[in-house]
Simulated scan of single mutants.
Amino acid sequence: MELIRNQSQLRPHHQNCVATIGNFDGVHLGHQAILRQLMLQAQQRQLPAVVIIFEPQPPEFFAPQQANARLTRLREKLMALRRYGVTRVLCLHFNTQLAALSAHEFIEKILVQGLQIQHLVVGDDFRFGRDRQGHFGLLQQLGQQYGFTVASQPTFIIEGERVSSTRVRQALEQGDMPTAQQLLGRPYTLCGRVRYGQQRGRSIGFPTANIFLHRPISPLTGVFAVTLHGIHQQPLPGVANLGTRPTVDGTQFLLEVHLFDFQKTIYGQYVEVEFICKLRNEQRFNSFEALKQQIVQDVQVAKAVFFS
């Protein structure tokens, strides 16, 4: 899968394709339905399948302090899109210039001049362009003018409610991992590289893999039973703390994973952590001894999840 980092990197060989547009945060079941329709059209027309996304996401540009926690960072999103056979991802830098484009200008400059799309697939609630003035009817109208067709993907419904990134986020905030998995169509995971930490876990008998997530906030916090992927043929079970570690410093957001009966050094490895179930909320302890006693209990509960 090719990543095109901005409109300025588009070349003649990128033209003539089928495409879809959106944030695709989480790549949940609703997004997957759009991707299936995109891939079907790409196969039928024998054209490349292109996903157009934005970085930062528009809400992060307009109101960064109020923006919701992301479900997926860019790298995680790209990993998910690759699984569905997408040919290319065009990642548009969302800035003042892009935000100022009218819906008509967006279609003309990005979709027509940049990509010469032949077919576009969008969600039935898709809005775009300055002040979100663009809509499906406008796409159909201008598609006739510029020579491309448009299809909308109906809302994906589970248990009478629309599947959305907001709904996934709410499930994660509540620690409801089964519902999050149902909406995503897969377990929720976070990815990152194992870095050197302060060695505090090792000092109390529970060495941890410290994974820096490069995100200021997360929809998920607390202590979890997890599996770690990427360093062994089989996923490795463990217990993880995701948060700011209030007993230690309470500032840096970090994912710490203690793997059961595991002694190898894995610094520098890029890993994926799958969240199985939430054990408790993160909390501050009065001493490291109290923290150690709680970790002993957490390990016992997590092992019961895997081995009972």
Rank of each mutant, 00 (worst) to 15 (best):
N286L: 09
Q145W: 09
N281M: 01
L139R: 11
H104W: 02
V51I: 05
D176N: 12
L190H: 12
H14M: 08
E105Q: 15
Q97M: 14
V248G: 01
L190I: 10
I211T: 06
E256D: 14
G197D: 06
S287R: 01
Q153E: 15
G268Q: 03
Y146V: 11
H93M: 10
A49L: 01
Q252G: 08
I52V: 13
F94A: 06
V122D: 07
M177Q: 01
T247M: 15
L101I: 15
Q144L: 07
D125G: 09
G201Q: 06
V163L: 10
G134V: 10
L139F: 12
Q269L: 05
Q300Y: 09
E173M: 05
V273W: 00
A63Q: 06
M79S: 13
T96A: 14
Q198M: 05
V27Y: 01
C277G: 10
Q37W: 00
L228T: 00
Q66F: 04
I107G: 13
E256H: 06
S164T: 15
F306A: 08
F106N: 04
G114N: 13
A67L: 01
H119P: 12
Q174A: 14
F128L: 09
E289F: 03
F288G: 02
Q198V: 02
F306G: 05
F288L: 08
Q133P: 12
N286V: 09
N6G: 12
Q15H: 08
V194E: 04
H14P: 09
P237C: 01
R200N: 13
I34L: 10
Y146C: 07
H14S: 06
A49Q: 01
L47K: 07
Q7E: 14
T155G: 13
V112P: 12
I217E: 15
H214E: 15
G123F: 06
Y188E: 10
T179Y: 00
N281P: 04
I53A: 05
T179M: 02
P187H: 07
Q133D: 13
H229T: 03
L190T: 04
F288H: 10
Q294S: 02
E55G: 04
R83M: 05
N6C: 12
R83G: 03
G185R: 04
F285W: 11
I21Q: 05
Q294I: 02
H232C: 02
R45V: 00
V122P: 09
A67K: 01
T189R: 07
F307S: 04
F24M: 05
Q293A: 13
Q116H: 03
R88F: 01
I266P: 04
H119G: 10
L71E: 00
R167I: 13
R73D: 11
G185W: 05
Q233A: 09
A80Y: 08
E55W: 08
L259K: 00
A100T: 11
G238T: 02
E55Y: 12
R11D: 07
A151S: 13
N286Q: 09
L71R: 00
Q116L: 06
